[in-house]
Design a protein around this nucleic acid. Structure first.
Lengths: 150, 150
DNA sequence: TCCGTATAGTTAGTATACTAACTATACGGA
DNA sequence: TCCGTATAGTTAGTATACTAACTATACGGA
């Protein structure tokens, strides 16, 4: 019984290992790899928003969940944790009283370069010995697996 | 910002999708994909145990955790759930009063062929359009990622 | 203008995955 | 024989990921 011939096991294990490695790297900062992914999404989305209207529709929990292919309770709870840790804050949406805009605090923004680097380090470690073509091919394979299951 | 160019996201998403797809397929049986993985491990290990001594050392929660590269609290809790659902039962280890042997009930064993097929179906769906060489290559890439992070 | 349907976000619950710490037991060396 | 160290399994807590259901709000068509 060779676990390393079972694709389901391999995908799951690779996911756990990359999360585990990044969690370790992020311990000092006090966030998890999943939280980093959320911070990263909000940061990059803020960067490309050119005006208030874009921010109002692209930085709601629903929009973030959609972009990250995650479900809204998960994003809602994770945002709550970031707010509690003063990494993010909520602003009411003037156009929709149900909705709110999620923005990053300065405390989070100053950490972005370091967090980007830590995440990059984990992925570089994960792909040690891979050529650029290997990494590209792996991404294509995983994209196709995801597409097949959507 | 293209999520599909981020390897960490792709690995995580592929893992979630395969789990999600198999969870859906297993809903009627009343177990989760993670529980299936545990049942599968116990079943295959029982199959290759030739005598009582092998069973005594290969079917403890600690041995299962090691083989599945999981941690013992996780296995302990999942075994508890399988026991509660009458899919598994515990037998005391006569050689070590701390230890116990985990075995599958008949209720679980009769489901094995169907569960094997459902798991196989998910992986076949995940790799639709892949040649045998593609699947082999993907497994090699993932094995290397895991090895790099261990 | 009203109301049925849809949506945003949350709450509650469940299932894993993990860390830390605990109790009970085993073991090997002095 | 004793005891310090190690191990097996569990408990407690935290973090995600998910489903189901809820409240509040929005919207579009009659």
């Amino acid at each position: 019984m060779d676990y390393y011939d079972n694709l389901g096991y391999l995908i799951n294990k690779a996911a756990r290992m990359t999360k585990w490695d990044l969690n370790n790297a992020l311990t000092d900062v006090g966030i998890t790899s999943a939280q980093w992914g959320l911070i990263r999404d909000i940061f990059l989305t803020e960067s490309i928003c050119n005006n208030e209207a874009e921010r109002l529709c692209k930085l709601t929990p629903a929009a973030i969940a959609e972009r990250m292919h995650a479900d809204r309770p998960t994003i809602s709870c994770m945002v709550e944790k970031l707010v509690k840790q003063d990494f993010a804050y909520r602003v009411s949406n003037p156009n929709d009283r149900r909705s709110q805009i999620i923005l990053l605090t300065d405390k989070a923004k100053v950490l972005i370069p370091k967090l980007m680097q830590l995440a990059e380090d984990t992925l570089e470690k994960a792909t040690t010995g891979f050529s650029e073509e290997d990494t590209k091919q792996l991404k294509e394979y995983l994209s196709k697996v995801i597409e097949n299951l959507m």
